[in-house]
């Protein structure tokens, strides 16, 4: 029975990169409490790594000296902190009321067919991940979606083609 015991540091923390540390240190000057920096630190690490792995999460917890369980609570609370690996481009696709009225369902199935992925999935080449969001606050230009930091409005199948093409070109 005693052999069953799993040490609580089974996953090893990743040492944060110098760039990550610089940015986290900056955030620490803005908050009175280290625990409050947790969310910013998660965003910083995600910016650099694309997502937050178990090792990264432990790395942040260790660096900030806060319980990993608490930080996990923060990380999993926010849908857009990715605790699983995502594609190089994350498509945040709005399927809320205005977009729905403006025919987002057709756009969605177009993306789905083109990339061969559904919500929550990543393309085999690791280029795209498709995630639904409830609203992007641009209803007058519906249907809309975000890819990375860029907003794309009044979507049509043609626009989707060019957005995806652009992403691939930039990558190459």
């Amino acid at each position: 029975m005693s052999q069953q015991v799993i040490a609580s540091t089974a996953t090893k923390a990743r040492r944060l990169s110098a760039d990550e540390i610089v940015e986290i240190e900056h955030e620490m000057t803005l908050y009175p409490d280290k625990r409050a920096v947790g969310l910013e630190a998660l965003k910083i690490v995600q910016k650099h790594q694309g997502w937050v792995s178990d090792e990264s999460l432990l790395g942040i917890a260790k660096y900030l000296d806060i319980p990993a369980a608490d930080l996990e609570g923060v990380a999993t609370f926010f849908n857009l902190v990715y605790r699983q690996q995502v594609g190089k481009n994350v498509i945040l696709f709005c399927d809320s009321v205005s977009c729905w009225i403006m025919g987002c369902e057709g756009i969605k199935s177009y993306i789905k067919d083109k990339l061969a992925i559904d919500y929550g999935e990543t393309t085999e080449d690791g280029d795209f991940t498709l995630i639904p969001v409830p609203c992007l606050g641009d209803c007058d230009k519906a249907p809309v979606m975000m890819v990375g930091p860029d907003m794309h409005r009044n979507l049509t199948p043609e626009k989707i083609d060019s957005i995806i093409m652009d992403c691939k070109t930039i990558q190459d």
């Binding site: 799993i6 040490a7 609580s8 089974a10 178990d54 369980a69 930080l71 609370f77």
Partner: peptide
């Protein structure tokens, strides 16, 4: 951990 319908009470990972 997590939110709305998926709230979960547990450890960061399995363990004592």
């Amino acid at each position: 951990q997590a939110s709305h319908h998926h709230v979960y009470f547990g450890r960061h990972e399995e363990g004592v």
